[in-house]
Design a protein around this nucleic acid. Structure first.
Lengths: 189, 189
DNA sequence: GTCTATACAGCGATAGAC
DNA sequence: GTCTATCGCTGTATAGAC
């Protein structure tokens, strides 16, 4: 594990933070270039156009989500605890008065190229699938208690997490997200 | 009540639909002008700059919300029924594969001028205040059943409605919003 | 792989005629 | 109240030298 990254990864890091703060149409190659310390032409070398950059961002984001939940599943057995850790995946951007990548892209969806839309849907699908499985397991093993379809509950949880991020940001109060997330999990006790 | 509107109102109507589809930074005066059938200079006559236009949009949106909930309160007594009608306020944009104005502005918040941010926070505050009151009344009168603070529940409902809009849009499935909203109200039975 | 230079479209905004 | 004309700036993107 080396400390320094290659330029492509650095560009993706900066681009992701810019999307999370300003949206996919709220930043330019010039913004990335300034932060990375190169010229815009160099960015185009790594990602010929903004569509390529956007797709790379989503692919990486989904990969990281899959890796994070896989690791989470391997080290945690209690379903309630799994959900608590899932919450933490989304609390980092909230602390920086941002939202996660998927919330920003979801609101920009009308201006996104088709491949990015498909990638975004895949990301949400992965979240819902994981949530539904954890809810089912938790109910079967007695860690979670709720009525109705786990499928609907998964949607409910994901939706409130997304909306919670928007509210926290609008009020400049990260605590709003945490209280909303806590309330969502409390309902499963 | 006349059928035709003045130009300012027409501009606001078009602008609102554009914000709801593309975000505050995703449309230009040229887009409005084309749809209204005038030139961009005319838009600047009514709203000197985009900030003025944005503020007018939010002010009108809050006024309409206050009027809608006031009317809703006057014609409906059952709290559960009130919440069901509240849901309908947000389901119109979802059918058009858009989100409500507040969701779009909330995700654009980092690029908005201060007055627009304040207006947005006021709009959310109005939603939360109304929800909290209806939740309290409903529990007191036996129409609604839930545990914990109504304040937290109000946040939970608003958040899931906002997130539900983003999910419905991302999957191009308005039904997702309706199922999420239904699930949120079902929990109050 | 990064640079300089540049093309070209779109943006918000203004001046001044009608 | 709407128009034409125009300005200055920023956006994405490319060609070609190093």
């Amino acid at each position: 594990m080396t400390k320094s990254k290659n330029t492509s990864e650095t560009i993706l890091d900066i681009a992701q933070s810019l999307v999370q703060e300003f949206g996919f149409n709220g930043f330019s190659y010039a913004h990335i270039a300034d932060k990375v310390g190169v010229k815009t032409a160099s960015i185009h070398y790594h990602f010929p156009n903004k569509e390529d950059l956007g797709e790379a961002l989503i692919v990486r984001y989904l990969q990281r989500f899959v890796a994070a939940t896989a690791h989470l599943d391997s080290v945690t057995k209690n379903s309630k605890e799994k959900l608590r850790k899932y919450t933490l995946l989304y609390s980092e951007p909230v602390q920086d008065f941002c939202t996660c990548l998927s919330v920003m892209l979801a609101s920009d969806v009308a201006t996104l190229p088709e491949k990015m839309r498909e990638g975004l849907a895949r990301f949400f699908e992965a979240n819902l699938t994981w949530l539904e499985r954890v809810l089912d397991e938790g109910r079967r093993e007695g860690d979670l208690h709720f009525e109705g379809a786990s499928h609907l509950r998964a949607h409910q949880i994901l939706a409130s997490f997304q909306g919670g991020q928007l509210l926290a940001r609008s009020f400049r109060d990260p605590g709003k997200f945490h209280r909303i997330a806590e309330e969502a999990l409390f309902a499963l006790s």
